[in-house]
Every structure is written in structure tokens, then in C-alpha cells.
Amino acid sequence: MTAEATLPSRWRFGRLTGIGPILALLAVLLMVIAIRQPSFYDPPSLLAFLKRAAPLVILAAGQYFVIVAGDFDLSVGSLVTAEVVIAARLIDGDPAMTWPVVALMIGFGLMVGLANGLITTALRVPSFITTLGMYLILVGAVYTWTGGSPRGALTEEFRLLGRRGIEGIPFLQQLPYAVLVLAGIATIAVVLMRSDFGKVLLAVGGNPRAAALSGARVNLMRVIAFLISGLFAAVAAVLLGGFGGVSFQVGAGLEFTAITAVVLGGVVLGGGRGSVIGAMLGAVTLEVLFTLLNLFGVSGALKSAVQGLIIIAAVAIGRTRRN
């Protein structure tokens, strides 16, 4: 660099522009909520909101790794459903089975991620197709295995993670476990993206040829991204199983909600650009928006139409801003 090189103020601004729009949007929505329902900001209610938002934020973080590497993961919604249904049947109300099954769920998430990654890289199937296929396979397999309706039951120990928290904390009343899990996942995601791994992953998404010619193991990086997505989906499934309950609907449509959140957070489809913080903020913003729609009495049936509008608008705005 030459002498005129370092202008700290400029690069700080440059970094902010990445998550600037999503922060602004979130702020506006939060202000609307403040006017419409000030009680939203009571600490317990705020934490309850975060607890509700945690699974989507975690899924968005996982989806971010795949998208930023240039791929898609459409299998996470059905993976969540499969995990919850499998857990209910295996635990079947037996408390002793809780933790072994949670471990199994994590393992299953990693396995699905590995399969997605290997099929996409080694067999060169576009990830859109790989994970769409995986989505259908998981749905079909779970229906077949359960004979059409979920069986078994989750234990109270299992549901604890999604529903309960550390009680008796002054001012907050309860610190939900889901929020703690979310904080852990968010920390892991941010640290990963600040590490050499994260920077190279961005390069792989931005220009795979250049990354490979600089010595990066492009395929390995992409497989790892799918592994992270599978792992995070498994964690989200544990929370959702406790929070929601056992049904075939538990994960339905979550893959698109997660992708919408990531795109809303300023991450570019096709890879190489955007921050994981932006992706997670995108998920929070989406949840705030759904809360607002609820407050204004907009039918829940409109939720998917709103999502559709958002994803198209976010990508369109992203495209025009870049050109």
C-alpha cells in the first residue's frame, strides 16, 4: 500500500453498508411495534420473541454458509420435520432415551449435509437439484417410516430446550435455553466467518476458479458448508420439537423462509458476498415482520405471499444496487 492508503473511516463505512439496509429496516419495524404494542419491549416478552425466533435465525445462519459458497440448501425444512418425527418415535416417552436421541439427531443432520455436499461436488449435480431431491427423499422416507402419521412422543426433558429456561433471573424472570443456544450458534458462526476458513469460503463463492488456483480445496469447502447447514438444522429441529410439537408440518416451508431471511440480510445469491450477521438479522427482521402482521390482524395465510414478495424485492434491489 502507498502512503495515502489507510483511511479507517472509509472502510468502516464500507463495512457498514453491508448490513446497513437490514439494520435500517429492522429499526423501522421495531419502531412501528413500539407504537402499536409497547409491551413488546418488556424484557420477558422480548426474550419470548427471541425464543420464538431462535430456530429460524439458526437455520438462516446455516443456510448462509451454503449460499455464500455459491450453493443452495433446500433440504433443511424437511430435515427439521424428519428429525422431529424420528426423535418422537425413537424416544417414545422414555426419558432415558432423550440425550442419546439428541446426539443421533445431530449425527443425522451432519449425515444429510455430507450427502448433499458430496453429491453436489463429486457428482457435480447443481445444489439446487441435489437438495430439492434430498427434500423429497426425506419427506417420502419419513411418511413411509411412520405409516402416514407421526407416532411416539417427546419427553419433558427434550421439550425443556425449546420451551423452558433458567428461572429466577432478576428483571428477566426467565432466560430461555433457546436464546442461550442461539447465542452459542451465533458466536460459532461469526467466529467461523472471521477465521481463515470464512474468508476462503467467501472467495470460493466469489470466484471458485481463482480460489482453486490459489490452492483452496474448493470442493471440501463446499462440503463443509453443507455440513454446517445440516448441523444447524438439527439444532433448530431440537428447539422446534420442544417448542412446537410433533407433526409433519413442523419444518414445512422453513427452507424458503431461511433463504428469504438470508437474502433479506443482504447476502447475494450465487455466493461471495454478504455477512452472516446480516443473514441472522434478516431472520430476526422477518420474525418481527410476522409479529407485526399478526398485530395488525393480517391473516397468517398471507405469510407465504409476503415472503415471496420480500425475496423477489430483496434480490431485485440487490441487483440494481450493484450495477
Binding site: 472467495a203 481463482a210 480460489a211 490452492g215 461471495g272
Partner: peptide, 26 residues
Amino acid sequence: KAEGLVLGQSVLDNAMLALRAVTPTV
């Protein structure tokens, strides 16, 4: 442009690409 640079990444990130890819370190 096609095979050398990651155009959307910074000067520093581009300059560190090989180092990070081949000898990642904490």
C-alpha cells in the same frame, strides 16, 4: 478477472487468499 481475483473481496483478502487457503491458522 476470471481466474485471479475475487472481485468482490478487498485488496487485503485477495492478497491473503493463497496464504489462508493453503496454510490456515488461528
